[in-house]
């Protein structure tokens, strides 16, 4: 569907410890509103024998998934269990909802087709008139007039080619039979039970959450030998400013690692950023606590974080 905001919460499919997003609308929504832009990992059907340009799905870092779940924007679904269970035996209510959904899509597709036909007709008519007038002026005004309309139509059009397969002939007026390309509609109502236990929150999560909260965009940082590449805005507009690596509050940091990270950071015009959640009091007790309620403790409590950036002074 070409709706701007997808139905919340968004389903994050967990497939063998990877958090994947399959719907382009979800991806766009998250990128616009929640500073999440992860790499594409899917093969492009048009160009399967290359590994430079990838396509859907995108793979979220565990930190990103955690942030989204914590915000209530998304939920985790273990796809190997969730998907078959929903497909096989939908209850009556969800079955109805699904059929409704299909019908709605069909009407929309039919409406779009109708509009397109009308537009074409109108266009042809205006062209026939325009022959008498000055050509340039006319074309300019036509674009001005029909700008929004044509945009809308192309929007519907692209969506209908992507997700619908008009089987019926164009003369069928009301509802088109639509073959959905994804099973997304079947899976839309999230499961009732809390699935946040499916998340294994990584150790660097507090740092990630801290940076994310401050409006930074994060990408995985393996290329720069760090946990996260931190961008001040959308990565399409900015180079990253920091390479962030998390450390536990009382973890010993090897001096050599600092030197190496700082050196690389300065080489690639970034700063090396280290940070971690502040722990006060007795560490051992807290660690024990943590092990008991691994996910909830970490994910729900807003831990204060400190971060430091390191640069080489003379290079």
């Amino acid at each position: 569907m070409a709706s701007e905001t997808p139905k919340l919460p968004i389903r994050i499919s967990k497939v063998t410890d990877r958090y994947l997003l399959f719907d382009i609308d979800d991806v766009m929504y998250l990128r616009r509103n929640h500073n999440i832009c992860s790499p594409f990992v899917g093969t492009m059907p048009q160009a399967p024998s290359q590994s430079v340009f990838m396509s859907l799905p995108i793979e979220l870092m565990a930190e990103e998934a955690t942030v989204l779940v914590e915000k209530g924007v998304a939920y985790i679904a273990d796809d190997s269990v969730f998907h078959p269970s929903r497909i096989v035996s939908p209850d009556a209510a969800s079955r109805n909802a699904y059929l409704q959904d299909l019908r709605r899509d069909g009407t929309r597709a039919a409406a779009a087709a109708r509009e397109l036909a009308e537009y074409k007709k109108a266009n042809a008519a205006s062209k026939g008139k325009g022959k008498k007038k000055d050509k340039k002026l006319d074309s300019g005004s036509a674009i001005d007039k029909d700008g929004p309309v044509s945009e809308e139509i192309s929007l519907f059009d692209s969506s209908s080619t992507r997700e619908t397969k008009p089987k019926a002939e164009p003369r069928a007026p009301d509802v088109w039979a639509v073959t959905p390309a994804t099973s997304g509609a079947l899976l839309t109502p999230p499961p009732e039970e809390d699935t946040s236990a499916l998340l294994d929150v990584p150790a660097g999560y507090p740092l990630y959450a801290h940076l994310h909260e401050n409006g930074y965009f994060m990408m995985p940082g393996l290329r720069f030998g760090c946990d996260y590449n931190v961008y001040p805005g959308d990565p399409l507009r900015f180079h990253s400013h920091f390479q962030a690596t998390h450390y536990a509050w009382n973890e010993e940091i090897s001096l050599l690692d600092l030197v190496t990270g700082g050196r690389l950071g300065t080489n690639v015009k970034k700063s090396y950023l280290i940070g971690g959640a502040i722990r006060s009091g007795n560490d051992k007790e807290e660690e024990a606590d943590e092990k008991e309620s691994h996910v909830k403790n970490k994910a729900s409590s807003k831990t204060p974080v400190r971060a430091f950036s390191i640069e080489w002074a003379a290079m």
Partner: peptide, 12 residues
């Protein structure tokens, strides 16, 4: 990550 870090520094 550590190996990538070290390797990249050395290769530069």
């Amino acid at each position: 990550h550590w190996l990538h870090l070290v390797n990249r520094v050395q290769s530069t």
